[in-house]
């Protein structure tokens, strides 16, 4: 069961990543060229996913859109981990102290701002762009990783092997980096896949309302926004980008589930 979700998830993710990577060197059609006579075509042998209202090939747009989605979500996870994990490690090492208190309270504060609200604030001030979407989603990811890291690091600090490391003269930073971090890594990877999939959903939502990637950069959310007025005329315009999002998110979630089972033998035993 669990290896099945790992495999299905991995395959779906590979398909999406592969499509995004190939789009750097090749797409079936050039999406910057308009081909009005061939607009709104349904899927065919020439245009596998049909064409949009400008006659652009949707398959090519989906490939390039994957790039936007993956890049935004990946960098946002990077921001969340890059800032959240050190903060969490630090808070756990200084537990009960004022640094811990300040770190955790500021995390609570960020938690009070849903990522959409952060994005609205940022775009109200700096304008809409993919970079601002990354920042908004990234900020939202920080407390997620900080809390997770602190929570699991706290219980590790009570363990004997950490005490042994302390006794051998290692300071809190070395203990955190050399002993705590490797032990929370699995959890972080699993959470990373979940935040990655949430990032894809958030990016799509932000682009849909015009707060994310701006034209001409293709993004799945923007494609859906464009499709909205034509949904009765050409349903495939709305169906295909939506399926692309569902497949990526489903793939990442299954991969995350599979990895969790793989990393945590306790759960594996309990389930079988």
């Amino acid at each position: 069961m669990k290896s099945r979700s790992l495999y299905i998830g991995a395959i779906l993710c590979i398909v999406v990543v592969f499509g995004a990577l190939i789009s750097f060197v090749w797409t079936p059609f050039d999406i910057t060229l308009m081909d009005i006579p061939n607009k709104l075509q349904t899927p065919s042998a020439v245009h596998w996913f049909g064409t949009d209202h400008f006659g652009r090939d949707i398959f090519s747009m989906i490939m390039i859109g994957a790039r936007t989605s993956l890049a935004v979500a990946l960098v946002a996870v990077g921001i969340g981990m890059g800032i959240g994990v050190p903060l969490g490690l630090w808070a756990a090492a200084r537990t009960g102290g004022w640094t811990d208190e300040i770190i955790m309270r500021s995390n609570d504060l960020i938690f009070a701002f849903p990522s959409l609200v952060i994005a609205i604030l940022i775009t109200a001030v700096f304008g809409a762009s993919a970079v601002n979407a990354i920042i908004a989603i990234g900020i939202f990811n920080i407390p997620v990783f900080a809390r997770l890291t602190r929570g699991s690091a706290l219980s590790l600090w009570e363990r004997e092997f950490i005490l042994a490391a302390r006794v051998s003269g290692k300071n809190a930073i070395r203990v955190s980096v050399e002993h705590i971090l490797p032990n929370v890594m699995n959890l972080l990877i699993v959470q990373g896949t979940i935040q990655f999939s949430l990032g894809i959903l958030a990016e799509a939502g932000l682009s849909y309302v015009g707060l994310g990637a701006q034209p001409p950069v293709p993004s799945w959310g923007r494609m859906l926004a464009d499709a909205q007025t034509m949904v009765s005329l050409a349903p495939h315009l709305a169906l295909i980008p939506g399926f692309a999002i569902v497949i990526s998110v489903l793939g990442l979630n299954l991969l995350g589930d599979g990895l969790r089972d793989l990393f945590d033998p306790r759960i594996r035993v309990e389930r079988t």
Binding site: A204, S232, V249
Partner: peptide, 22 residues
């Protein structure tokens, strides 16, 4: 539920409009 968490709500909304309204 696995499928439910993967579906963007605004896309689901568009599909509801397509099927139930249009």
């Amino acid at each position: 539920t696995q499928l439910g968490v993967a579906v963007p709500n605004f896309w689901f909304a568009m599909m509801l409009v397509l099927i139930l309204s249009i």
